[in-house]
Amino acid sequence: MLKILVCISHVPDTTTKIQFEGDGSKLNKTGVTFIINPYCEYGLSRAIGFQEEGKKVAITALCVGGPEVEPTLRRALAIGADDAVRINADATDAGFVAKQIANYCNGKEFDVIFTGKESIDFNGSLVPGMLAEYLESSFVSYATHMDIADPESMTAQVKREVDGGEEVMEVPLPAVISCQKGIAEWRIPNMRGIMGARKKPLSVVSPNESLELVATVQFSYPPAKGNCQYFQPEDVSKLVDSLTNKGLV
């Protein structure tokens, strides 16, 4: 039996119009739709793929967050995770999140831990590496392929993209794998899965005390786009004049 943990980030939908609260230190969540971080969802899909290949697996989906993340975990259950865990704390600092997940993993003997290559909100790419360090396990980042040809061997075959090619690796389990596009296809929960998710356990775990080492002081919007002036291809001389007049050339 392969025990797989899929770490899931609860993130704003990719089409969200981002707005911040008054002092700019927090996202304004009003009217924002949240989804499973798409890169985490690749990990979940890959885990379910093992099941479809006939391997015996137990898949736990985990998210660090308040009660508002439960619909996201319920979706993971509907897609095919067997049980879900919510660590009841706000996920603000990567070190804190990695520490919480590591604490939870302690003694659970997960063979594979999938994470996204990054969460699409903060884009830190920090949690998987820190988590592997805390767990003293192998770590492959940005995996585009992952296989366990023989579960008895406790070895995984992993591929990742490198500049101009592909890197093929073999890593001992347990391993933390951060997932990149290509490792699996996203799945849409079907109606029977959604009904089945009602009966699957979703447990809430209290966070362990650990320090938040980094605090966000402020977010700011990218600078507004300046006025653009367009020139037709036949008007190159006008462009040169304009740049010259502005003292730019």
Partner: peptide, 8 residues
């Protein structure tokens, strides 16, 4: 659950 059904 209705919202999950709808989005799916």
């Amino acid at each position: 659950e209705h919202l999950l059904i709808r989005s799916s």
